[in-house]
Nucleic acid binder design. Structure first.
Length: 298
DNA sequence: AAGATACACAACCGCGACTCG
DNA sequence: TCGAGTCGCGGTTGTGTATCT
């Protein structure tokens, strides 16, 4: 069957969103909630594709989104998760509820990839982080179908990896601390940001962080997860393996990783370096654990 | 000061997955 | 069971901004 164009191209506006468009979209969602994106352009009068509306909302207007610089802890968490999950940005984003997958993806492509490459070059050339990652990642499709079973493996691996960071019990400083640290550096501001802030009061308190606003029954709830959902959401990415060996080898079990990526030691040392975290910053565990029920997570 | 280049981020596109009749 | 419609994800591109020469 031929896929029809998502929108009637001639009538669809492209390019940057204007504040007026943002307002139209936000006020509509405020009234009806996110979801049923197909109906959004029609009902709002926006000359935008439904996809564009959804993207604009999830990546930019949704309340609870943190913008600006990524903290060092967020960086490390992303690197860990990327190693575990591969380029499953949505899955990775589910562990950082205040960040969007697009944001993480961009940050990875523009910052972390270079950073890791640089670091791995310091160890042994030829085995970039990307290559390491690729080896550990199974083709898409496999992991998705094994989500519920493999997520446990991923969590185990993540726990193992993180336990190297900080063997002590997780401190009680959740994301807010990291958020504060990061937002203090954040220079990004926009009218859309302001719109999002306006919406924070509208969102239910428990929803604001994750932006889980989808009406019941909507599939889109999976796209924006609160912490505990992230731990169990079926859409989340999981160990990119069928037996879990590659997952563990990538993080804790350096025996396996060493075979695949001897150059990773430098990266590891950076990832595992907690030296810079002690002063009011939040450790990796602190970022991860509060996202969900710890007992469920581990 | 002006042009060139690099960088960062928002947005688009295409595909696969899911839902429902 | 099948097909149409819709949604979400990941890769890629376009554009504005910052930095360098």
């Amino acid at each position: 069957m031929g896929r029809p164009p998502c929108c009637v191209k001639a009538e669809v506006k492209k390019g940057p969103w204007t504040p007026e468009e943002d307002l139209m979209l936000v006020s509509y969602i405020q009234e009806h909630g996110p979801g049923n994106w197909r109906a959004v352009p029609t009902n709002t009068g926006l000359m935008r594709c439904s996809k564009s509306c959804r993207l604009r909302w999830t990546n930019y207007l949704r309340p609870g989104i943190k913008r600006g610089n990524f903290s060092d802890q967020e960086e490390k968490l992303i690197v860990h998760l990327q190693a575990l999950l591969g380029n499953r940005w949505a899955a990775i984003a589910s562990y950082l509820p205040e960040r969007t997958d697009n944001d993480i993806k961009n940050y990875w492509n523009t910052h972390l990839k270079k950073k890791l490459k640089k670091m791995s070059a310091g160890g042994e050339e030829g085995a970039s982080a990307g290559e390491v990652k690729t080896r550990a990642v199974a083709p898409k499709g496999q992991w998705e179908r094994r989500l519920q079973t493999d997520i446990h493996t991923a969590r185990q691996a993540l726990r193992d990896a993180l336990s190297l960071d900080d063997p002590s019990p997780p401190a009680k400083q959740p994301l807010e601390a990291a958020a504060t640290a990061a937002s203090s550096q954040a220079t990004y501001a926009s009218s859309a940001d302001n719109i999002a802030r306006l919406l924070e009061g509208w969102m239910r308190p428990g929803d604001a962080a994750g932006g889980k606003t989808t009406p019941s029954g909507s599939r889109s709830s999976a796209s924006v997860l609160s912490g505990d959902q992230a731990a169990s959401a079926s859409h989340s990415g999981t160990a990119p393996t069928t037996d879990g060996s590659t997952v563990t080898s990538k993080t804790k079990d350096d025996g396996g990783a060493a075979a695949a990526a001897p150059a990773f030691s430098m990266l590891e040392s950076w990832l595992l370096d907690d030296g810079g975290m002690g002063h009011g910053e939040v450790g990796l565990m602190d970022v991860v654990v509060p996202l969900g029920d710890p007992s469920e997570f581990f």
